[in-house]
Nucleic acid binder design. Structure first.
Lengths: 363, 363
DNA sequence: CTGAAAGCGCTAACAC
DNA sequence: GTGTTAGCGCTTTCAG
């Protein structure tokens, strides 16, 4: 930026003020402020919480005492008293994955708008961790939770956790009785495949994640049905299931998918002329893998991804993909949770958000 | 969908157990457990906190009462009593950026190892938000903070926040009296440039972030000095400063850097034959931008990035870059903070971690 | 080894 | 409008 304009503030003023103004904010309580202001703790509390029934003059006295002393409310005490932590737990399987990052951002923005902060937990692949996170709710460490992790949701199913205040995001089971937000994975996968069919492809590969997850099964079914409806018999050799969404996993999957292999009975099976990968991270890896074995995209093999994370438009060629409204998914999840917290009895609905096919150079 | 195989667990068992075992865990306190176990609250507390001085028989009685009732400790109360939140605040400028994601992961792992959870805050570009986050410390909402945001650190300078328990990560000012961890940005940038020089480049461009930030100034200086030492006069037209690290920012910067432009006095300046971008996200965008104007990498223009995020190895061509030990940066930051919390008086040092030049196809 | 009791700092009735 | 007071649920002396 080179412009020396902007951030040049007079630093001394702040430093001086700090020295003069903050005698010992540590260990200062509402009682201390009350004494200094010559009022009761109740009045200080009222001012702190912006209650109406305080005479302006009194309020000013209190306010003066507060910023003369540098007092800050102790939220530990407030939280105990009000029996809420004002924290929302967000469980993600991997916050290195840009897909989750964007959703988390949506959650964060809504949460903050409502005076909540976000406790972010990476569940990783560790099953022990996963299980224990729901306990944070029972221990009152968080008021509610949003779960983005398929594995954790599987876990939750087996426990009596449906009574706990949480919502599922992206991976969900409508039958579970837990509020959720996501997209129609079946239709989305079908859309991807139909796009490839329209481009003239007949041998379409699928690089999917673990079919233990509902979303993976739904996308697989969408893929299978779209092919069948087009009069194509889907071969098993076209499909791969991975337990990772990393770039590398996509790259090596692509390579092995292109390897000539034995078909059932009738000799060699031709490798797919197109690959549908269920995440853009995988698809990005697929591009890399195909390049490494000299396949050109889209001339030799077309590629469709899923999610539309920001890298999708940057790779070469840019990825055709199914866009998920990531930000809105996060925001909606947060709203559903807040709604559930505000009214524990209300029937919070499951909601499906629209997806969209984004066509770029990879097909 | 389809396969009913895998995770078909006997769901009833869990459901039944829940119904039988959990009468009303809500509103159950340590006093209730004490009553059920026929002991005092003090004893229950001792068991809860694994104190040694409890007779085994008593302990067992208490344990039995605890899991008969489904009791969970109320951490709100515990936190007030012990005057700690067991939360570590992590401030990032943008958790959509994979660089920060990996660091955050390092922080999280160390924090959890020590019984802390992580309050993650995206400071975004909002100056109002930035300022208020340090207040979370004063309000006892977090026990300590790790700041990854250059802008927030600038901000902190102006306040009396150096007494607060926080550490700086990646962006830091050794003169600030705040513990920090980072790398030697000056040397790292020099290494990148010297690599390019060794490849025979004489016109080397720099795509930098805002020079308001110390790390940006250090990298710029490293770049300038490396050129000068090689007997090259760095032209102003080779440098750009951006206020974003997004892919798109890198792409458009690359395009405009390649534009023929007026040199100082002597007519046309030739565009750089190599570009050093101060983050891999920018560099990835640079690749995209160069491609869009028909430049080949590395034949027409070489590119060096910074960070070595995982996408760097996947793009085409794979990025030569300066690797930062992201995970270790996060872990170290967390350790320094924990150290500072354990012993507020101790002099916590600043630490520099080694960087490394990773050579790939883009040069 | 166990129990009684004193708060942590705050909010919210309930009086005045 | 303002003050008094009773806890929120826990940990931790201090006695016994």
């Amino acid at each position: 930026m080179s412009r020396p304009t902007s951030k040049a503030k007079p630093v001394e003023s702040a430093a001086t003020r700090a020295a003069a103004v903050t005698p010992a904010p540590e260990g200062l309580s509402i009682a201390g402020v009350a004494r200094q202001a010559g009022v009761s703790v109740a009045t200080v509390s009222r001012v702190l919480n912006a209650h109406e029934n305080v005479r302006p003059a009194t309020r000013d006295k209190v306010l003066a005492a507060i910023d003369a002393s540098g007092y800050r409310v102790n939220e530990l005490a407030r939280n105990l008293r009000t029996a809420e932590s004002r924290l929302l737990l967000t469980m993600v399987p991997d916050f290195g994955n840009p897909f989750y990052a964007e959703i988390v951002r949506g959650i964060d923005s809504i949460a903050r708008q409502h005076g909540y902060f976000m406790l972010l937990c990476d569940t990783g692949a560790d099953p022990g961790r996963e299980r224990s996170y729901f306990d944070l709710l029972r221990r009152r460490r968080a008021d509610g939770a949003i779960c983005l992790d398929p594995a954790t949701i599987q876990q939750a199913l087996g426990e009596a956790s449906s009574a706990l205040p949480w919502v599922a995001c992206c991976e969900f089971d409508p039958a579970m009785g837990v509020p959720y937000v996501g997209i129609d994975n079946y239709r989305a996968a079908g859309d991807a495949v139909r796009h490839l069919l329209a481009r003239g492809h007949r041998r379409i590969g699928l690089i999917n994640s673990d079919v233990d997850y509902l979303y993976a099964r739904q996308r697989q079914q969408g893929y299978l049905d779209a092919l069948t409806e087009a009069g194509i018999e889907p071969l098993d050799g076209w499909r791969m299931n991975l337990n990772s969404l990393d770039y590398e996993a996509g790259a090596s999957a692509a390579v092995s998918l292109m390897l000539p292999r034995q078909g059932r009975g009738q000799g060699q099976t031709e490798p797919p002329s197109a690959i549908f990968a269920v995440s853009d991270t995988l698809a990005t890896g697929v591009l890399h893998g195909l390049r490494s074995i000299g396949k050109r995209v889209p001339q030799d093999v077309a590629v469709v991804g899923f999610d539309d994370i920001s890298i999708a438009a940057q790779v070469d060629p840019p990825l055709t993909t199914i866009a998920q409204p990531m930000r809105e998914l996060g925001e909606t999840a947060a709203r559903l949770l807040l709604q559930r917290l505000a009214n524990p009895l209300a029937n919070v609905p499951g909601v499906l958000l629209p997806h969209r096919l984004v066509i770029r150079g990879s097909t």
